[in-house]
Amino acid sequence: MHIPDGFVPPSICLAGYAISGGVTWYSLREIQRDRDPQSSIPKSALFTAVFFIASLIHIPAPPPLTSFHLVLNGMMGTLLGYYAFLAIPIGLFFQAVMFQHGGMSTLGINAVIMGLPAIVAYYVFRLRSHLPRKQQFWTKALAFISGASAVLLSATLFAAIAIGTISPELNAATERTAIYLSLGSYLIQALVEGTFTVMIVSFLEKVKPELLQV
């Protein structure tokens, strides 16, 4: 769901940069409140690597759909909190520069599409602290919800922008149908990413539970 160069008007690109700039500023301010902000940097850098590489791995999907790649923004938000909004633009930057996945002019808007849902996922996962009973089950359930909902939210944002920017020279009806069809594949992707987030979270909970305290 990376928007390539030249597909959205300059005003949208600028708005994307403005919004992601504002959210980055806010994220930095939230990070400053940490007792030791530097201690989370190794974790953030490692998960940026995972995010960067995830979009290169194509997972085959059932016949009507071709294949998809994991975005993992829900997992990023769950594990990194506000650091996710710094990690995601960095990952996107390298994806755009090295693999032409996305583009420089659309970096801002792509950061919004993938970064904002990551922060939403973080808040969903944080609800865990309000649920004292059945920690095990609720941790898994919340991990799944945050992993899956981030993808669905990103897909919705992407579809909204794609539909909103159908240029007049395109056949709008055809393009709109194609976008609605693609939402089906994002639904499968959401299930996969939710499961993946559950796996990572349960693994970390056994091995290094302090990593989950963002």
Partner: peptide
């Protein structure tokens, strides 16, 4: 390219 990119991130992680 992917490996060198990933190594860059891991290097950053190790540095901090």
């Amino acid at each position: 390219m992917a490996i060198s990119g990933v190594w860059g991130f891991i290097g950053t992680a190790l540095f901090f």
